[in-house]
Amino acid sequence: MEGRFVKNIPLILGAGMIGVLIILMLFGPYLPFVDEQLEPVKHRWSEDKRLQLPPYPPSVHNLLGSDKNGVDLFSKIVMGTKETLLIVLGITTLRYMIAVPLGLLARRQKGLGHVIVQGWNQIFSFIPTILAAVLLLSIPPIQNAEHRLLIAIVVLAVIEVGRVAQVTAERAHQVGKEEYIEAGTALGLSSRRMARSYYLPALAPEVIVGFCIDLGKVMLLIGQLGILQIFLQHVWVEVHFFTPKYLNTSLNWSALLAEHRREVLSSKFGFIFYPAAFIAFSILAFNLLGEGLRRRMKQKYHTTG
């Protein structure tokens, strides 16, 4: 048992990386080198008594340097961890809560459920996911909604429900050909009972693995939205005479990405690189976890059956 477990490197790595993220999320604000208040440092005297102005390069004071207001970048990222992860988790959970029952409804590959799943999947395949997200998130009632974050989470979840439901339905269709399912049907069990006690346990491993991989996909989508300067949470304020602007009010990583996006063009890479790297880190963590779980379940399946 022990020996087999050790071999599953992706699972260990993935769990370890998720662990790091969770520690950052829960205890990050209390770490000694994290400035919880995110206070801007407008100027600073260097060791040889020279005046320094922000943005500061990486140093003992700022592990990853600071932005142009003198706010520590590392602290910003750490303080945004919780929000980012909760948003990603929220979107993915909601997506699966809608998609899995819908997929089970469509398992016979015919009828209303099937048409809904197919249609849903197709609608959003003609417009790339990211564009569908932009199109829907910028509808005025959603753009100016009071609880924009909640609506944004629902919209981003719904866009890809069709894809997940389709995968679930196809898999359920395959499972439906197994003998023990036919036995259940022969016993005359209700459709609901069949879905809950026969299909769901058989599908659970793949759904869990898919969930982990979708966490990564959602993270990527949010990152892409950040690149296009679309915030999940913002206020509309007047920034200049008669010039209103949507300003980001959140610290999540994609918002950080949006803030610094333009700086690449002037060859200042650092600011945009760190949030992007953290996003990459968490996508990798989710994928490793998914792959590890897949292997683990495959092994289990082989030893018991």
Partner: peptide
Amino acid sequence: WLMQSFPDFLLIL
């Protein structure tokens, strides 16, 4: 598999 896990925009950036 590992390369597939990296976000496209990071690579492009």
